[in-house]
Design a protein around this nucleic acid. Structure first.
Lengths: 335, 335
DNA sequence: AACCGGATTGGCAGCGCTGCCAAAAGTCGC
DNA sequence: GCGACTTTTGGCAGCGCTGCCAATCCGGTT
């Protein structure tokens, strides 16, 4: 901790060995608590490390070590603007921290080509695993992941085949459950209000499941509005206004997520429309605010943190290859 | 891209060199586009790389290279549950991506000791820079950062001295501006509603600035409620109920952030209290939903993305050592 | 045709660390 | 006090790549 600061050069393991009066291997063994060492050696090394302020160089360690790094995990998420992904990361980092693995992150902006480039970039750090979001990737991305010699975990979506391990829930099933709930409650003129589907494929799968379940009930979507850009309360608010103008007889709206639904709720408050009397609202995600609303939002709670945690378990090889964590429909008071 | 997959071993630069029929140095030079090379060499290398599916090993590259890694940045945030930090990361990754630097993240959970441990762990990857949140750290963390031979950027808070570079805004000033706004609008019985201050030091600084400005106006806080745990709409809602029960004559509430304020707004809606007639609400952060509310929330918008971007510029050495990005008071309709 | 300067190239040491192996130091029983 | 073990230790090669340097090549000169 002292102010030793060899101008350009950082303290190396060799320096520690010299300072402690032992061999390099001994320092290495002591530091990693691997193999046997005498109490005396441990003490001298600890002293030297403290005196010199030694910080091991894992670049070198991983390079010399067995397969690869095994101490980094590459994570690619499509966005950080949507709470879902920070939550995922939260679960991941929480679980990986405990075993000393750090996450290197990449944000693809929902662009498969950027995802591909990021996959290559992250693999060049020889991570222990590559964590992707969703099941849809460029063929080249899949090839990279396969050839990379790393474990691959795809998170969030279980509607389809994965490269290796898959942890999430069925977005289709969420959509279907949401539709069945609305139908059971007697709503018949149901619209969909979402953000860009080309971009958020999982929202598209929910909608597909939703429409399929409506179909089973002999219904079909009574209007739909797709807003450009990412989801946000502002977008939800504006979208609901458009939708109501176009279909004044709507009795329920299924939103692509809670943020959009919150905006819709605000639009209703502003317009003085009673919820769910005049119009019912149904969201997705089960965010914190949903339960705090004057009328708790009807929505589906997704196991975001748990997906992160299970993905961590997966990459440590402690879990099955395919985990469906399900979801929970929250009845709420808006639908 | 083919299915070459030498059982255990990954493709190395040497393999590429052999395949291309050139020397290792040539491959290295071509791949990094550094030094001169003939067109023919470039073509043969590109071919070999494609044929073998070569992914460079940056662990080795960084180890062999000059100073250190210079391709990784270590980022420590206190939490991922609060939008502020994902926004910060968004700005950071966006700007660093362009120059090929990846972020390795650590989440400290607002614990200085964990922060210290994370700093050591991240430094062991020999990052080009270490990005911390706030200005308060363990002395050991500071020593590590100083000795690590890396650029250090402290983000968000400018109220105090930094280790090296500092990018953010003055939380004290935010608090003071908020207080002055409320006072100017005629509110006199103002309470504070926040989450754990021991933990979120920046919220504490805002409160200090707020109280100081109240003092200048001859006022003092008319009640305060500190909720345990992280901020959330639920906590804000419950907190406001407590506060109103205790101080029925309150005319305004300053919240530790917009999430808390949203909960407060919901509490008012539920209780049928008119806002801001009966009670005024003032938040902090300027989140998306604030503008979509039936009455836009009065709050302060903070340049979160921009802080991330500027921090990136800082660590690339393109910026001054201290950047105050200011903030914007949004008058809104709730105070 | 011999020569010259710049462009291009390959060999090789070495970045800091770990794994392997043989040497050295302890331990124990008799 | 001595051999047979077991524990602890240090030397050294080598992980995959880059920087350095000397060798080679090329085109145009004289």
């Amino acid at each position: 901790m002292d102010e030793f600061q060899p101008p350009g050069r950082l303290v190396t393991l060799t320096d520690v060995a010299r300072e402690a009066g032992v061999g390099e291997s001994t320092v290495s063994r002591v530091l990693r608590n691997h193999g046997s060492s005498s109490k005396r050696a441990r003490e001298r090394v600890a002293e030297a490390v403290a005196r010199l302020g030694y910080v091991p160089n894992r670049l070198a360690g991983s390079l010399a070590g067995p397969g690869a790094s095994a101490q980094l995990a590459g994570v690619i998420v499509p966005s950080l603007a949507n709470v879902v992904f920070p939550d995922l990361l939260r679960g991941l980092t929480g679980a990986l921290d405990a075993v000393g693995i750090r996450c290197v992150i990449g944000v693809s902006d929902y662009d498969p080509d950027r995802e591909e480039a990021l996959a290559a970039a992250l693999l060049s750090w020889r991570p222990a695993a590559l964590l992707l979001t969703g099941l849809e990737h460029n063929p080249a991305t899949v090839a990279l992941a396969r050839a990379g010699g790393v474990r691959v975990v795809e998170m969030i979506d279980t509607d389809g085949a994965g490269i290796d391990a898959v942890v999430g829930f069925s977005n289709r099933a969420v959509g279907a459950a949401s539709a069945r709930h609305l139908v059971a409650r007697g709503y018949r003129r149901i619209a969909y209000l979402g953000h860009d589907l080309q971009v958020d494929l999982r929202a598209g799968k929910r909608l597909a499941g939703f429409e399929a379940a409506l179909g089973e009930a002999g219904l079909s979507l009574h209007g739909r509005e797709i807003r450009p850009g990412p989801s946000s309360p502002g977008s939800g608010r504006a979208g609901l206004e458009v939708l109501l103008a176009r279909h004044p007889d709507l009795d329920a709206v299924y939103f692509s997520n809670d943020d959009m639904a919150l905006g819709g709720y605000f639009a209703c408050l502003s317009a003085g429309l009673s919820v769910p009397g005049r119009i019912a609202l149904f969201g997705f995600n089960g965010l914190d605010f949903a339960a705090a609303m004057p009328q708790p939002l009807s929505t589906v709670r997704t196991p975001r943190l748990e997906i992160g945690r299970q993905a961590a378990a997966c990459l440590l090889g402690e879990s099955p290859k395919r985990i469906d964590l399900g979801f929970e429909l929250i009845e709420g008071a808006t639908a």
